[in-house]
Design a binder for these strands. Structure first.
Lengths: 141, 141
DNA sequence: TGTAAATCCTATTAAATCGATAGGATTAAT
DNA sequence: ATTAATCCTATCGATTTAATAGGATTTACA
């Protein structure tokens, strides 16, 4: 399960992408449109800014906008930033690898093997999907 | 991330499958071999029994054994039992569906769309992989 | 130059979940 | 009887989650 943080983050980014002409967009507008708690969303957008996905403009008429072309922002990076590892188990994580204390040999661990396959199929989806693409699919129908 | 419950459950099932000739296998043996807390494993195997994957024999010389042919036990069912929904979000879950309070229209929700694709690619892996197959891949190399 | 509207920062909290741990009741083989 | 197993219920500490609170700072604009 992904957290609400991740879910709200994706929705917010899609909103910003869909309204890219109106940016910077204040947190309050997104919170209202997407039914997200304002303060919670503030912290999420802050994470996305620190992570290099969003940029912000302070003060009146300020808000958030995309730092890069949404065709060049991929969902893997967003999910990694908001949720942490893509892998369902640290021992198959590319970016957050950890050994298991209970496994003498990773190669022989059935969980390891299975989760490796799931990680790969998930990565396949997330690496291909850009924010621009997701936004178009969701809104443009 | 999957829980340790799920991880240990998969490892235990693989152990039982790999040692099917010696079944029923007592919890204590699996706990020792796979470095799992005995009491924790007890509760996991109990879940697997109640879920119809394992059967048990009580008393001395008792233990757990597979209820069905391991070629006919698929990883989807095991994961569902131990972790709950395969989907990363309740609104795309086949077996644990729930509406989101914040979404007026699911079809237009970007998170929904993305998680639908991930669910499908994950299901693809989990539905195809049998316990027998996973056991062979992990142990037999 | 003052005010409104925004980001930004730090801290707290209530609730839920996780990963165990504890203690014993029950059942069956020898 | 004894031993070795499942089975059942309850508790617990730690961590994470999803907010909430309060305010400091920055900027547009009248």
């Amino acid at each position: 399960m992904i957290s609400k943080k991740t879910k709200y983050g994706i929705k917010a980014l899609t909103y910003i992408c869909a309204n890219i002409d109106k940016s910077p967009i204040p947190t309050s507008v997104i919170a209202e449109e997407e039914n997200i708690s304002l303060k919670f969303l503030e912290s999420i957008l802050s994470t996305l800014r620190k992570g290099g996905i969003l940029a912000s403009k302070k003060g009146k008429k300020g808000g958030y906008y995309l730092r890069k072309d949404p065709n060049k922002i991929f969902m893997v990076d967003i999910i990694r930033l908001l949720s942490g590892p893509i892998a369902m188990v640290p021992c198959v994580s590319l970016n957050f690898y950890e050994t298991c204390e209970d496994c003498p040999n990773e190669e022989e661990c059935s969980t390891h093997r299975l989760m490796l396959e799931i990680r790969d199929s998930t990565l396949e989806v997330l690496r291909k999907k850009s924010l621009a693409q997701l936004t178009e699919e969701s809104r443009g129908r």
